[in-house]
Design a protein around this nucleic acid. Structure first.
Lengths: 128, 128
DNA sequence: TAAAAATACTCCATAGGTATTTTAT
DNA sequence: ATAAAATACCTATGGAGTATTTTTA
């Protein structure tokens, strides 16, 4: 089990959507599938119940989610404590015109998310 | 930062000896050096102060040690919680004739250590 | 000079990507 | 027909090893 896998799992568990999770993590969708599969094989339990398009956390998934949150939070804290650059947490809402956002936001957000996984980012594009 | 790196760091921090840590982890010595270097580069701080043969934890290293312990313990707990196979912790002492031990113990111990990193194993070989 | 860590290099395992197939809406 | 996840396959990065050099006790 590696932190990278736990972070992928966390993102999928939050969004309940492999494709969107991949987008947020700047991964290909298949890479996210692979990471989850690795975890599932390692643990010998499936973490998501695939019901066609909809996916839902299994009991094992629920349980892992608790730990994944704690572990990644601790990692952030560790990085902050050692480097002095405390990682932030909280919530940010953002409104931006569709045309601008669709152009620049994806890369920016992916980068931001990597640095601040504990910030609940809530972007929305408005049409002018 | 990956759990594998933290585990290598933990072992070095405990033994204060790269070579012995490598032995315990079933790694080559250079691999352990590499893992520590990766962490140090990632954090932008050196974790050990190399004073010739002796090494000692830097302040940053001390700080990371706290988190590394918590994080790896949580990982063990997570594995246990999800799989139901609780990982053990405690202390084991073992006495075994030198000739037998030197033959079979190294591989066995390395494997055991991977499964139960929180067990403080204390093997000693006696001469007959 | 002996013992430990760093370094140089090599190799291969695997993480991640692309393209496609499967599955369910 | 569409949209999402799984699968097959390929590539390249980097993790790990061997061999060597550096360093210091």
């Amino acid at each position: 089990m590696e932190l990278r896998n736990l972070k992928a799992f966390l993102t999928v568990a939050r969004l309940l959507n492999f494709r969107k999770a991949a987008e947020m993590l700047n991964y290909a969708q298949s890479s996210v599938s692979a990471q989850i599969r690795i975890l599932e094989e390692e643990l010998g339990k499936s973490l998501f119940q695939r019901m066609g398009r909809a996916i839902v956390l299994t009991d094992a998934g629920q349980e892992l989610l608790q730990y994944a949150q704690k572990i990644t939070a601790l990692e952030q804290e560790a990085m902050g404590a050692v480097t002095g650059t405390k990682s932030r947490q909280g919530r940010i809402s953002l409104r931006i015109p569709q045309t601008i956002g669709s152009c620049f936001l994806p890369d920016i957000l992916a980068g931001f998310y990597k640095d601040h996984p504990n910030v609940d980012f809530n972007p929305a594009c408005v049409t002018l």
